[in-house]
Design a protein around this nucleic acid. Structure first.
Lengths: 137, 137
DNA sequence: CCATTAACCTATAGACTTAGTAGGGTAAAT
DNA sequence: ATTTACCCTACTAAGTCTATAGGTTAATGG
């Protein structure tokens, strides 16, 4: 299940991508338009900023804006940043790998093998979908 | 992320599917072979029994056994039973649908639309994978 | 018929995560 | 100087996950 954090984060990014110019948008503005708790959204936008997706400007007329072209922001980055691993099991995760305690041999594990398939499939979708694709469906 | 409940459940089912005959296998036996806490496994097998996947026999020589041919048990059933929805968001779930509080129009929602893609892809894999496929890789 | 075996059932608890809330501090425009 | 809005820390209520404990019921063997 996708966390609300990720869901809200994506919605906010799409909101920003839909603006043609790069004029800063205020948190309160996004929060109202997308029905997201302002304080919660604040923390989400902050992590997006710290990870190089968003820029911000303080003071009057300030707000958040995209640092890159929406075409250059793939879903994989957004998901890994907000949600964490894309794989359903840590032992098949590319970026967040962890060995299973109970599994003596990964290659012989039925769960492992099918979850690799699922991961590859999901990854393919996320790799081929950018923020730009999300913004004009 | 896949819960341990689901993971253990799949492992136990594969374990049973690998036995050629339908002789009952005891919880303790599966628990040892698969490195699963016995009591936890007990509750998992019980829900599999209540939902028509497994049969059981009490007393000496008792245990759990598959009720159907492994070919006839698709991953979709196992996943929905143990893990719940296959979709990443309730608003794109076929069997566990729920409307989002924050979303005025599902069809206009970017998250909704990409998650439908992911769901369809994952579903295709799970539909075309049976317990038999898991058991001889 | 009685002892043994193993499934069945209920309750509970510790650890962890989620989805926020509260409340202020800091920097930059005007 | 004052407004505006970003930035940060801490906390918490609720829920889920992963079990554990302990007793009950039913089948089998002698």
């Amino acid at each position: 299940m996708l966390s609300k954090k990720t869901k809200y984060g994506i919605k906010a990014l799409v909101h920003l991508a839909k603006k043609e110019d790069r004029v800063p948008v205020q948190i309160s503005s996004i929060s109202k338009a997308e029905n997201i708790s302002q304080k919660f959204l604040e923390s989400i936008l902050l992590t997006l900023k710290k990870n190089g997706i968003l820029g911000s400007k303080k003071g009057k007329g300030g707000g958040y804006y995209l640092l890159k072209d929406p075409k250059e922001i793939p879903m994989t980055s957004i998901m890994r940043l907000l949600e964490g691993p894309i794989a359903m099991v840590p032992c098949v995760s590319l970026n967040f790998y962890e060995k299973c305690d109970d599994c003596p041999d990964e290659n012989a594990c039925a769960v492992h093998n099918i979850m690799i398939k699922v991961r590859d499939n999901t990854l393919e979708i996320f790799r081929n979908t950018s923020l730009a694709d999300l913004s004009h469906p």
